[in-house]
């Protein structure tokens, strides 16, 4: 997918993935790829800066756990993150409806 189309929605996608439960970076990337059926591929160069930015904005809360002898950083949604996610999803849906209205329904054939 064109990175310009993805620009501005990465944080919304991350918040949505984390809203289902605490998770970590690699799993977030895999989940986005899986749920988008391979259309969206979050590069690590974009994923981790976005995660850290959301953490600094207090929308995510991070904590560490040891897994197989390694330290793993988990993220979970804060209350503010949940409110931000709701607002972003509403805005996206309105935007997508507007775009859809302009582009029209996809043809059957």
């Amino acid at each position: 997918m064109d990175s310009q189309l993805l620009w501005g929605t990465v944080e919304t996608l991350i918040l949505e993935v984390i809203s289902h439960g605490p998770t970590y970076g690699y799993e977030i990337a895999q989940t986005v790829t899986s749920r988008s059926k391979g259309h969206i591929d979050l590069k690590e160069g974009s994923l981790y800066p976005a995660l850290h930015r959301l953490e600094q904005q207090r929308l995510l809360v991070a904590f560490w756990q040891e897994v197989d002898g390694r330290r793993r950083k988990y993220y979970k949604l804060s209350a503010a993150g949940q409110r931000s996610l709701d607002q972003r999803k509403a805005e996206w849906r309105a935007f997508a409806a507007g775009v859809q209205g302009v582009l029209g329904a996809p043809s059957a054939g």
């Binding site: 970590y24 690699y26 690590e44 560490w64 897994v67 390694r70 330290r71 950083k73």
Partner: peptide, 14 residues
């Protein structure tokens, strides 16, 4: 160390 551990975990999983 946190940055190194997070990225190293990611690479290990990958």
């Amino acid at each position: 160390q946190d940055i190194v551990d997070e990225l190293a975990d990611h690479l290990h999983c990958a």
